[in-house]
Structure formats: structure tokens, C-alpha cells
Design a protein around this nucleic acid. Structure first.
Lengths: 192, 192
DNA sequence: GATTGTTCTTGACAAATGTCAAGGGTTTTT
DNA sequence: AAAAACCCTTGACATTTGTCAAGAACAATC
């Protein structure tokens, strides 16, 4: 399973075999069945999670029981609650598997150790953080500036592969729309 | 003017006098009048901007001419278009001064040089990026999960000082609401 | 193979939010 | 001091989006 993560890293940075051995030595693996939690609201997030196979979602459940999806995490993506991890606070979010998944976990401390030991890895993390900021900013832009229909077509064009893999009501939740509205928006736009 | 930035840094990290001299040696300063641009859509962002005094906004103007405020940047905050800066692309955003402001600018290359030369500064930047991710995530949460009224009270409780400093229609723009709706929301909530 | 659960659609209606227009009070500019 | 620009509110109305309920298609489970 580690080879998937290794391949992902090889694609981005150049590390030595010793570097990979170090990383592998602290890597933990976990299989998740569909609907199984990786993190439950109330828990403290202690791991950086990298999705090797499958599909996770990171979401918030409000007082009315409604789910609001903060992030989709398919293969080759990271997930985890930064806030909980950084401040040691109980998380307000849930993470679970939409599909059967295989996850690589790195303990917060091990992750920091790797960053300190391997400068190229550290640079890579910084780069990832910067890119993440750009992604989040674009999402905010879509949220405050677009109509339901525009949000949907924006999503489809950005994430064509995700839209085939998750039920429509989850996309609606991700976009901050009701499932019914999204269903209507979609049927109208295909009619054109 | 540099002393303001120095004070900001002293609050967060411990640096030597030489470190500060290095930073100061590459710092640029700029005064902005009210409404003056720091960055205009179409320009390539080449500087990290730190607000020493005053108040900037970072926003997007859509085809209909409507402004959508992505970020408010009061004193002791950073601003700039990451995407444009990182990829060398023309920015889609504008940055201008809401109040008369004094800005410290660091060229992208100098900023990177400082990160490489001063490890504590580098750690600080990483920390800032992580915190920023948490802030952006919370904003997304508010966008997809809250009603107009909830968005407004959430904003007020998070940024009480900002809400006294900027016109209401800008807060509306930041929240993705029309100015009229926000005006009504507010008058209803004060009536309680 | 029957049952249960999930997903998606659609209709009818309600609620939230946006748009346009007008006016009054400020502040800024000339 | 006058004029212009800006800010906020309010009303009337339009549009968008949400809610509730029902049913059909499909998949998952027993």
C-alpha cells in the first residue's frame, strides 16, 4: 500500500531511498468500509490522512441534523481537521468513507519529524498549503458570487470525476444548496 | 514604519537584530490614499503586502460590475494574490485601500530569501498558512451552512472591530448578500 | 426473491433573498 | 457654502431557493 503514497511523492519531489524508508517506518495503514468513520465529531484529530484508494468526505452536522460537506477527498488527496490537530481541540467535524477506502495515516508528531528531517518534504508541504489556500479561496469566491446554476456548472467543470462518483445530494451539500434545487438546476441545464 | 512590522514579528517569534536588519534591508514601503489600488485586475502580483496602518480590501468585480469582497485586511494583516504570485498569472482580483494606509511590501523573491535564511521566519510562515487554512475553512462553513441572519451575527462576533470600520454594503458583499438584505437583517436583530 | 434503503425527480407551496426605486442623512469635494 | 457623492433604509415586487410529500428506479441486504 505504501507504494501508492511513494508514487504520489515521486511525482512531486525527489527523495532518497532512505527518505522513503523513514516515511514508511512511521506510516500507519487503515482500511475503511463504506460509511465507516475516520474521525467523529468530539474526537481530537491526531493524524494526517492520505487517501490511497477510495473516497472520503469531511463534513459538519448541524443542530437540525443536516450535513454540510466541507471537503471531498478521493485518492491522492489529504484530509484531516487542521484546527483540531493544531490546537488539540475536539473536532466539530466528521470524516467518513463514501466508498471502501485505504488510508495512510501519519501521526502529527511523525509528520512534523519528517518535515524537519527532510527539507524537500517540508518544501512540498509548504507548497501544498499554498495551493490549498488558492483552492479554498476559489471556493469562497464561488460561494459568494455565483447562482445555484453557476455553482453547479463550476463544480462540474472543476471536478468532473467527482461528480460521477458521489450522489447528487452530496454535491448539493458541498455547494450549500438543497438536493431538490440541484436536481432542478441540473435537469434544466441538460435540457439546453 | 518598519517598527510596526518588527513589533508584529516580535510578538510571534524571536529573531536577532541581524535578522531584522536583513528583513528591513529588503522592505519597501508604500502609502495609499483612500481608494488607491495596490493591485489591479490584470496585473501580476509580485509582492507580499503587510498592512502597517489603515485598511485594505481584496475583491473581485464580476461581469455585471458587482464587487465581491474576498478579504478584509486591517493593520497587522497580510494580503496579496497567492495564485497570481505563485503562478505568475495576471490577477483576477483588485486590492485597494478603504482608508488611508501604510503598507510594507516584500518582493516575492526577497520573501523566499528571508524564509530560507531565517528558519524561525519560515516556521512562522508555515504556521500562518495553517492558521489561514482554518480561517478559510470556517468561512466556507458559514457560507454553505448559515442563513443571512446567522452569517451576519457570525461576522459581528468574529470581527467586531471591522464591522465598525467599513460600510455595511461591504460586509454584505463579503458575506455574499445584497446590501438591502443585510440592512433588513440588522434592523430586525437589533429590535430584539 | 422479497424487503429495505437510497437516490433522484417532480409538484405545490412557503420562505428567503434579490432588484429596483426613492428619499433622507452624512460626508467629501469643489 | 453649495454641490456631489456616498451610505443606509424602506417599500413593492420579482426571483430564487427551500421544504414537504409522494413516487419511481435502482441497489443493497437478508
Amino acid at each position: 500500500m505504501f507504494y501508492i503514497f511513494r508514487k504520489y511523492l515521486e511525482d512531486k519531489i525527489t527523495l532518497t531511498n532512505e527518505d522513503y524508508e523513514l516515511i514508511e517506518s512511521v506510516s500507519l495503514f487503515k482500511k475503511l468500509r463504506k460509511r465507516q468513520y475516520l474521525l467523529q465529531a468530539g474526537d481530537i484529530s491526531r493524524f494526517h490522512a492520505f487517501v490511497c484508494k477510495g473516497f472520503l468526505r469531511y463534513y459538519y452536522v448541524d443542530e437540525k441534523g443536516q450535513e454540510h460537506i466541507m471537503q471531498f477527498a478521493p485518492e491522492n488527496h489529504w484530509t484531516g481537521d487542521f484546527e483540531s490537530m493544531n490546537y488539540g481541540l475536539p473536532s466539530k467535524y466528521d470524516i467518513d468513507a463514501i466508498e471502501e477506502s485505504e488510508i495512510l495515516l501519519l501521526k502529527k508528531e511523525d509528520f512534523e519529524m519528517i518535515r524537519k528531517t527532510i527539507p524537500a518534504f517540508n518544501d512540498f508541504v509548504n507548497e501544498t498549503l499554498k495551493k490549498n489556500a488558492v483552492v479554498l479561496q476559489k471556493r469562497i469566491h464561488a460561494n459568494i458570487a455565483l447562482s445555484a446554476e453557476e455553482k453547479y456548472s463550476d463544480f462540474i467543470s472543476k471536478y468532473p470525476s467527482i461528480s460521477n462518483r458521489v450522489p447528487l445530494h452530496m454535491i448539493a451539500s458541498y455547494l450549500g444548496l438543497s438536493a431538490e434545487t440541484l436536481s432542478r438546476v441540473r435537469s434544466q441545464s441538460t435540457r439546453k
